[in-house]
Structures are given as C-alpha cells and as structure tokens.
Nucleic acid binder design. Structure first.
Lengths: 190, 190
DNA sequence: GCGCATCTGTACCGATCGATACAGGTGCAA
DNA sequence: TTGCACCTGTATCGATCGGTACAGATGCGC
C-alpha cells in the first residue's frame, strides 16, 4: 500500500473542494474519498472525529490562510493603501475572480443554528475589524470606517454570489475595483 | 385520514423552510415531512418528481413572489424612487432584516454545476435588469445604471450573509439604508 | 535485516436515505 | 346512499450514509 500523503494538511485542499462543491451534508465520505484520493482508513486515521473534524480543519485552514494573506498585510502595512491593494489582489486570486465559491459564506447562509456558526462569525468579525483599523489609521473617522468596512466585506461576498450565479468573472473583478475606489476616496478625503 | 392541505401550494412554505435551513442535500424526506406536516404519501402525491420537483416548486414560488412584490413595483412605478422604496421595504420584510437566509443565494454558492443553476441565474439577471431599467428611466446613464444595479443586488446578498453570520439584523437594515441613499444620489445627479 | 509506528484497503455495522406500492379513509357529486 | 377521485399512513425496497474494526503493507530508525 503506497503512502499517499505525508501529513493531514495535504488532505485539506481536496477536503475543501469536496465541501465547497457539495456542501457539508452533500459531501459524503465517498465524495470526500474521491476528492482527496484517500480511503476511509486514511481519512479516519487523520481525522478521528470524522466528517465534523474534517470540516473544522478546513475552516481553520481557510482562516489561517486569510490571516497571513489578507489580514496581516492590512494591519501591518505602513500605508493603508498598500494593505488594501494586497488584500484585493489576494482576494481576487483566492476566489479565482468569483469562480470559486466562498465556503464560509455559503455555510453562514445555511442552517440558522449550525455547529460552525462561531468560526464563521469570527472570520467575518476579524476581517471587518482589521479593515476598519486600517481605515482609521489612514485618518477615516470611526463610524465611517466601520460602515465602509462592512460595505466592502459584504460587497465582496455579494460579488462572489453574483458572479458565480451569472458565470461572469468580469463582474467580480469590476466590483473589486469599485470597492477599492471607494476605500481610496474615503482615505483621500480624510 | 383527515385532509391536511387543499393544494400543493400550501406545502411550499414548509418546503422552503426545510430547504433553507438544511440545504438541498440536508433536507431529508423526514425533515421535509416534519416541516410540512405531510407524510411521504402526500408529498409524493403532490410532487411525483420527488425532492427535485419540490425544490423546483420552491424556487419557482420564490421567483413568482419577487416578480409581484419587488420587480413589478420597480418597473411600473412612475417615479423610480417610489419603486426603489417599495423594493427595499419588501426586501427587508422578506429577509426578516437579514435573519432569514436567501435560498437562491445559498444554492448559487453551492456546486459549480448544479441542477438549479438556470433559475438562479435568471433570478439575479432579472433583478439587476429591472433595477437598471428603473435607474435609466430616472435619467441615469446606462453603464452607471448597470454597475449600480449590480452593486445594490450584490450588496443586499452580502448584507444577508454578514448579518446572519454576525447575528446582527441592524447591520442589514443599515446597509439597505446606505444602498437606498446611493440610488437616490445617482438619481438626483441625473 | 529487524522491529515498530504509521498509513491504507476492505469488509462490515446499524441507520437512514429517496422512492415505491398500496390499502384505507375521506368528502364531494350524483 | 352510493360511487369515485383524491388524499394519507404504513410497510418496504435497494442504495448509500457515517463510522468501526482490523489485518496487511510500508518505510524509517536502528
């Protein structure tokens, strides 16, 4: 029996794809097995908690990716504009210009009481907070920074939904551009 | 055996709730049975096509509701502002200020190739087209009307996602207010 | 070369899945 | 009152679900 993966992290991309494409309930173990190339034996070896643990690992992995690729540049950049540019580039690449679904957004739209509500809320809270802080450091007043950050994060979510439904990646990129412009305008006025 | 419902339309609210709360795959027939109060016998009597037909009926029902409650006022109002106000009021009530999930949005975020892609795309296309037409009738230039309509429809979708994830209905209402203001501003400048 | 922790395939478990069949009840029309 | 179309509950189907058990293969440390 040839070893297929070295550590459980190697299974995460396949797991994420399975959950993204089929949802939590729709991602059966056979679907997951196909997506990851792993049998039940390996899956339960790396994730003794079963499907639930696999989903938690995927969410944690996504959160970690955003932390380094999106939030860190936003909060560390000297000039907020630099951080915003880095965020938009990372977002466009991550979501493949709206072709790739947002797992966290989709699960947040699901059951009112779902077991992943807490990490999902944390993800959006953190994103909004980091963006708001960047705007405030650029001189934008607190209340304006808050609503603007909400508009931008929400606008990105909506753009993913629309561009996927309409199968129009151009819509995603154009929306990202307009959101960037709004952020720049607010910074320029401050 | 007491008759429970008179026609299949009476089952749609329960069906919609079941699909909204559990997704398509997660809404098992027992979940659907509980939500509608109907047994398998009745369900397959009204929907011979099974789960798939139930989902199609729900989507068609939602589309019809939007047609009369949102799209019609938008396209028939003398003053675009009247139509926009009616749209926003209907949207806020329908989505219960962001507490209720958007079934169409959630399913659009799901599998890339899903059997309901066509009606979902049609729903968003129509919404954007009707809103764009209303803006143009109000004197807004076509390209601006298009991007503005996309921003508003996408913004509403994003606001649902955010306000549900953060459990904050106020965020939804406030976002709706800002989107309305943007529409009014564009109309005033035209 | 040996020993052992680690990984993997397969068989299997009870439960539940979506769907079907059908008898029995119900209420309206004649 | 009778007949019948319509609605409903129940039993049951094969398939698949998530999860477990475990033996066998693998490759690393020694």
């Amino acid at each position: 029996m040839a070893r297929l993966i070295a550590e459980r992290a190697d299974a995460l991309p396949g797991l994420a794809e399975a959950f993204r494409e089929h949802g939590y309930a729709g991602a059966s173990l056979s679907v997951i097995g196909t997506a990851t190339g792993l049998g039940r034996g390996s899956l339960y070896h790396f994730f003794p908690g079963g499907k639930r643990e696999m989903a938690e690992a995927v969410l944690a992995n996504i959160a970690a990716w955003f932390e380094t690729a999106v939030f860190a540049p936003l909060s560390e950049a000297e000039d907020p504009r630099t951080g915003i540019d880095a965020m938009m580039v990372a977002i466009d690449r991550y979501f493949q210009s709206g072709r790739r679904a947002c797992l966290i957004g989709a699960w947040g739209l699901g059951a009112t009481r779902n077991p992943f509500a807490a990490p999902i809320a944390g993800y959006f809270q953190r994103w909004i907070a980091v963006l708001k802080d960047a705007l405030q450091r650029g001189g934008v007043a607190e209340d304006h920074a808050t609503t603007l950050a909400q508009d931008v994060v929400g606008g990105i979510q909506g753009a993913i939904t629309l561009s996927r439904a309409l199968d129009d990646p151009g819509l995603f990129r154009a929306t990202l551009g307009r959101l960037t412009a709004r952020l720049y305008t607010a910074l320029a006025a401050a």
